[in-house]
Structures are given as structure tokens and as C-alpha cells.
């Protein structure tokens, strides 16, 4: 469905050039839920925004994002607008900030139909109320404003907006952020139900959700994909293992050190300063992603 090849994203800032995504290659297959996990600031959201071409002006993007045989990075802004929402939809983080406080939720869902399908206001509102019903909110509340809804409800509205035009691909950026565990469960089940037959890129740092929901999981560290796996039991990269060990049920052992600055990342393997298996070669050369793992230890065995 979506092929990302050698994607490099840089931001020019006053402090220096931030290398937010480095040589990222990833494939989102048809009907697949692909998880993207990693610590805050490792470039997960940037990857999602790059696919949607919603990065700020100070960014520089290289590489290819192939969708339906076309490189999204080469499309004009006008062609891209036809893809956004219709073909590929994104659910941004923070539903409370992503909804406009002065428009009713009905208007904000209807907006998608008004804009893309050129429906009349009345028809768009009718479709909006259908969408509300689908995501489990009573259509009676269609004229209420975002502040009248709880966090979980707002997330449901975000789902309704994202899925309104029946996109082929959904990018969900931390859809369970800030929700309590029972609401989390509901939102995840809802998304699973509604995205049947679609491909989804699920960006999260919740390992449990990633494991429960995803067919494959890509692990990102310092702007690079370090491992792609289908099951956490098969984890090989020291970083993935470290992440798993920091879960409460695996002993709550955090990884030593902090994630590196993306302006001046370490030489060689980006993870080597925190890795307990590091050897000399790790500090000099960055290993390639081979058989789904970016680590020299894996190459040897």
C-alpha cells in the first residue's frame, strides 16, 4: 500500500540541523496494522507528518514515499490535498487541541463531506450524525461543542473525522494518549473494528497496545528504524529488549542513559552509548537493518 524508501527528514533550527528521520525504509501492507513504537522525540510523529506532507517550512525531506505508484513527496500541494483525508487520513495527537473550539462537533465532521464530496450542508450534517453513531456517540449531541465532551469522546470524534471519507490508510498518532485504561481499551477496540480492510500506521509508545493490535511492529530509535518484528517474544535488538524490560510486568528496569540529541547523534550505532553489549565496531560503524534488526550482534549469530 505504502512504501517508504530511504526517507530522510531534517529540520533547520537555530541550534543546528535536527536529523529527525534517518534512512527510514518501511512498508505498510494492505489490511495491515503496523505499529511504530519508540521513546518520545525519536521521530515517530515526524514520520507520520511527513507521509501527510504536513511538516513546517523549515524541514527538508529526501527519499521516497510511494503510494499507488506515485511519490507523495513529488506531488503538488493541490494533488496532495486530494489525498489528505480521502486516501490517507491522520488522527493527530491531543484531540482537545485538534478540534476547533468555536465550531460544533457536527460541523467539524460535516466539514469533511462539505469540502471533499461537495455535499449540501444538510446532507453533510446528516452524514456527520451517522458518523457519530458509528463511533458510539448519540447523534443528539451533534450541535454540542468540543469542550462539552470528555477526552475519550473527543478521541471518538477524531476517529469519526478521520474515517469519514473511508480512507485506505489511517495514520493514528498516539490515539490512546492521556486516556484511562478502560477508555483506552474501548478506543482500541473501536479502531480495530472500524479499520477492518484498511491499512493503519499506529504510532504509540504503549507497548501493550502495540502488541495487542499490530500485525507488525517497527521500533524507532533516534530517527532510525532499529527493528521490525511481528512479536515481542522474538525481540533481538538490545533497545527493544530494554524497552520490554522497562515494562512493569517485566521488572520495571529502565534503560540506562537518555535518548541522544538528534542534532549531534552519536557516531556508529546510535544506541551504543546506552548498550551493554557494545563493542568497538559499534562506536565506528552504524549497522544496516538486516533481517529486521539493526545490530552487529545479530549479524554474527
Amino acid at each position: 500500500m505504502l512504501k517508504i524508501r530511504n526517507l530522510e527528514v531534517k529540520f533547520k533550527t537555530i541550534e543546528g540541523v535536527v536529523k529527525a528521520n534517518n534512512k527510514v525504509s518501511l512498508e505498510l501492507k494492505k489490511d495491515e496494522i503496523l505499529g511504530l513504537i519508540g521513546e518520545t522525540g525519536c521521530g515517530k510523529t515526524v514520520l507520520g507528518m511527513t507521509i501527510m506532507r504536513l511538516l513546517p517550512k523549515n524541514s527538508e525531506v529526501k527519499g521516497e514515499i510511494i503510494y499507488k505508484g506515485k511519490n507523495l513527496l513529488e506531488l503538488s500541494e493541490k494533488e496532495m490535498r486530494e489525498i489528505r483525508g480521502k486516501e490517507i487520513a491522520i488522527m493527530l495527537q491531543n484531540p482537545s487541541l485538534s478540534l476547533n473550539p468555536v465550531l460544533s462537533v457536527g460541523e467539524q465532521i460535516a466539514e469533511v463531506f462539505l469540502y471533499h464530496d461537495k455535499l449540501s450542508k444538510k446532507d453533510a450534517m446528516r452524514k456527520a450524525s451517522e458518523m457519530l453513531k458509528i463511533v458510539g456517540i448519540t447523534p443528539k449531541r451533534i450541535n454540542e461543542y468540543p469542550h462539552q465532551f470528555s477526552g475519550g469522546m473527543k478521541q471518538r470524534i477524531m476517529i469519526a473525522i478521520a474515517l469519514a471519507l473511508n480512507p485506505k490508510i489511517l495514520i493514528a498518532d498516539e490515539p490512546t494518549k492521556g486516556l484511562d485504561s478502560s477508555t483506552k481499551e474501548q478506543i482500541i477496540n473501536l479502531m480495530k473494528k472500524l479499520t477492518k480492510g484498511k491499512s493503519m500506521l499506529l504510532i504509540t509508545h504503549d507497548l501493550d497496545i502495540a502488541e495487542k493490535l499490530c500485525d507488525r511492529i517497527a521500533v524507532m530509535y533516534a530517527g532510525e528504524i532499529v527493528e521490525i518484528l511481528s512479536n515481542f517474544n522474538k525481540a533481538k535488538h538490545p533497545y527493544t529488549i530494554g524497552l520490554l524490560n522497562s515494562l512493569p510486568r517485566r521488572g520495571l528496569k529502565p534503560i540506562d542513559g537518555v535518548s541522544p540529541s538528534l542534532i549531534s547523534p552519536p557516531s556508529g550505532c546510535k544506541f551504543h552509548p546506552r548498550c551493554k553489549y557494545r563493542e568497538e565496531i559499534c562506536t565506528i560503524k552504524n549497522p544496516e537493518l538486516k533481517n529486521g534488526v539493526r545490530c552487529f550482534r545479530n549479524d554474527k549469530s
Binding site: R84, L92, L99, N100, Y115, I161
Partner: peptide, 14 residues
């Protein structure tokens, strides 16, 4: 700079 502007861009609005 508010996120709902980005969200509107994300649905393809001009």
C-alpha cells in the same frame, strides 16, 4: 499555530 489548523490541513483543506 493551534493544532486544529493542522488538523484541518490534514483533512485536505486549502
Amino acid at each position: 499555530e493551534h493544532e486544529f489548523v493542522l488538523a484541518a490541513k490534514a483533512i485536505g483543506a486549502s
